[in-house]
C-alpha cells in the first residue's frame, strides 16, 4: 500500500512537493508547470501531450538521464532538469 505522505522533488534547483504514486509528469502538472522543454529545432515550448509514453514531449533529465516524465514514478529527492523550457525564440 502506498503511504500518503508528501515527498519532495528538486525541479531546476527548487523543491516541489508531490504525492506518492504520482508520475513526474503528473507532479509537475499538478504544480501548474505545463512547459517541460523546448523543441530542439524551432525552440518552441513543449509539455506532456499523450501521457502514455508515445509522444516523447515530456522527456526531461531525471537524475541525470533523459526519461519520459509520464512513465516515471516520483521518488524522494529526485532531481529534475527541465530542458530549456520557455526558451522560445
Amino acid at each position: 500500500m502506498i503511504e500518503n505522505e508528501a515527498i519532495q522533488l528538486v525541479v531546476d534547483g527548487k523543491p516541489v512537493d508531490c504525492v506518492p504514486g504520482q508520475t513526474v509528469a503528473g507532479a509537475l502538472l499538478a504544480q501548474g508547470i505545463y512547459a517541460f522543454r523546448a523543441s530542439p529545432g524551432a525552440g518552441t515550448p513543449r509539455g506532456p501531450f499523450c501521457m502514455m509514453g508515445a509522444c516523447q514531449e515530456c522527456a526531461i533529465e531525471i537524475d541525470g538521464v533523459v526519461r519520459r516524465a509520464c512513465q516515471t514514478p516520483v521518488a524522494p529527492g529526485m532531481v529534475l532538469r527541465l530542458r530549456g523550457a520557455g526558451a522560445a525564440e
Binding site: Y34, F36, T44, P48, F49, C50
Partner: peptide, 14 residues
C-alpha cells in the same frame, strides 16, 4: 504543440 494541449486519452490516463 502548445503546452496545455493534451491528447484526449491523456485525460483518462492521468
Amino acid at each position: 504543440t502548445t503546452p496545455g494541449v493534451f491528447g484526449l486519452a491523456a485525460a483518462t490516463a492521468i
